[in-house]
Design a protein around this nucleic acid. Structure first.
Lengths: 348, 348
DNA sequence: TTGTACGCGTTATCAT
DNA sequence: ATGATAACGCGTACAA
């Protein structure tokens, strides 16, 4: 098969290639009639410009890349949708790209910058810990939009970040449980080796205990296994089953993700308990499913819409040279629903 | 900033560009020492080859594109993971690309073929109805992996397809409900304008009724609104609430997606009913959440793992010239869990 | 084993 | 308004 190129179109129309190029790219200096002719033959011939060649030549493609780490997070779809709208609003185009869990997102970004002449990058998800040195190679403005785990941004002027203070919000969750009477609170957490989001949420749990002068029962700290670090339904389910099998004494479960919370509820139901009658369960994230679960899930909801919007706004501020890089932290909202109950003074 | 190119590397190493190229692409004819030197300086200089330039030159990149329509479907993550493994196993690389709902996937594919020198394409999701003529332009083997809606493949030899017979499986669902005593079955369906998956599942519902000599109560056919055609939690919730508000008489709900089924359960719970005691609810899809919902969701589970695997296997068969295009239909499995109950003979 | 030179398809810069 | 031509960065045939 012979690929049809811009030259063929030019030849057929009896014009030069540059004229065809002008027609394609909506350049001003072109006769409407010739443009019409060219457009027509392009249609007829099914000509499609080769993007590789375009990117090679083009100085600037007015495009923003969004690099998504992992595909599993249910938030991302919504965030991407919002980002896309905002990007299109500014007449830029969005290059969506997935990064494998074991890939290095910065390497991918570096490649993409060369390939697509990007103007800006958004890193979505993943627990970003890269050497300043390496980040400096990324000569393009970028913002870190991190769902979970406020990055250590002190002194980082090479990029912006949008985050939630996981330590603080996790603290709020546990503090709330304590305030309504829970003293024996299990946490479904990441393994100790996890240094980002998992650790922050666990630290919040610990601090809330100590601030409220409640001793921590280490048996109630359930860490997922190193092999399966994902904040999944199944992990919540398995961890809770282990907790139950050990016959631990607790009144509430704090799962560090909504999916884990739902898994936890299921394990409790399977064991014949009721939520929140026998056990209270609280999640973290604010996924849509939480509202539809039965009982509706009490959770710490992350402001993902705002974060998505701010991510792009911040990126453009830097691109347009209006502002320096900034690190913004947004508050999550404790969303009270039906999976947690207040403990009566006699049952504490 | 000055972009560093292959020439710079060649110059620094005191070799020709082709030698550097050979080093990069692991060509055999190269002195290990020079290769080592080149690799070292590439690292040092942070040189990254420009993919646009490579694609432009390369005849063949041994890559397969997976075009995903929409980002919402919870299946896709898993399917993509499986496909990726299978593709990597064959030393090909996967180009993952999202297609907007209002974009034309074939157009996108056409562009991508030129840009990336694809060897094959997988269309995932979306309700594929394109002119043969247009598909013919796609000079690359492709397979249609359709979750929901067996495409009309009669006489289509230009591509392969992997699907589930939605009509048949939907029929099975309803037939099952009828067999265990349900006669007043509501269906939460797509609007009548939907000609693919929604229609097929509705047709199965109707056929099961007529085969079992049970009259259809049109008031129990709940179509989602034209504006919001998505198989979402909220749609299931809203449709069921409308059903309840109309005080319709029914004993079971067949939601054409698991998410809608869960939304439906929630509406029933909100109204003070119990599932399956007061109403039985059955879904369609087999999403992971179904097992963890309470009650665990009875559903028609699609064999997505097998489908993902077969999609790639079939694609490679055609790429390797081993086989012609084929259309394979896989059976779904009725997964009995806790959201449906048998009706006693006195309550029918 | 290595280097030179050309061309991939396009856009940008000149001319005209 | 239009056309010729030089890049863009790379892979590869061919020569050495």
């Amino acid at each position: 098969m012979v690929e049809i190129t811009i030259k063929d179109i030019a030849q057929i129309c009896g014009v030069g290639v540059s004229t065809v190029s002008r027609a394609i790219n909506n350049h001003p200096d072109i006769n409407p009639e010739t443009k019409a002719l060219i457009t027509k033959t392009i249609k007829e011939m099914n000509y499609i410009p080769n993007n590789s060649a375009r990117n090679l030549k083009r100085i600037d493609a007015k495009s923003i890349a969004v690099l998504v780490k992992g595909i599993t997070n249910p938030f991302f779809s919504n965030m991407i949708k919002i980002m896309e709208e905002e990007i299109k609003k500014r007449k830029y185009s969005l290059v969506l790209h997935h990064v494998d869990f074991n890939e290095d997102e910065v390497d991918v970004a570096l490649e993409l910058v060369k390939e697509k002449r990007l103007r800006g990058i958004v890193f979505l998800g993943g627990y970003f810990s890269h050497a300043e040195e390496k980040l400096a190679k990324l000569q393009v403005p970028f913002v870190l939009s991190t769902i979970g785990g406020a990055p250590e941004t002190i002194g980082k002027h090479t990029y912006s970040s949008i985050s939630v203070d996981d330590f603080k919000e996790s603290y709020q969750v546990v503090d709330y449980l304590i305030k309504i009477g829970h003293k024996k609170i299990a946490i479904l957490s990441a393994p100790f080796s996890d240094i980002s989001i998992g650790k922050l949420r666990l630290d919040g749990y610990l601090k809330a205990h100590s601030d409220n002068h409640i001793p921590v029962n280490e048996n109630l700290i359930c860490c997922m296994h190193e092999q399966h670090i994902d904040y999944s339904l199944k992990n919540g389910y398995d961890l809770t089953n282990e907790l139950l099998a050990r016959k631990e004494d607790f009144t509430a479960v704090f799962a560090i993700s909504d999916n884990m919370a739902i898994g936890s509820c299921k394990a409790l139901f399977d064991a014949g308990y009721e939520v929140p009658k026998d056990y209270s369960v609280i999640g973290y994230d604010g996924i849509e499913m939480g509202q539809f679960y039965h009982p509706a899930l009490t959770t710490m909801a992350q402001p993902i819409d705002i974060m998505a919007l701010e991510t792009i706004k911040q990126l453009f501020k830097v691109i347009d040279g209006l502002e320096e890089h900034q690190h913004k932290v947004f508050p999550a909202t404790l969303t009270l629903r039906d999976s947690v109950r207040e403990l009566g003074s006699n049952e504490k």
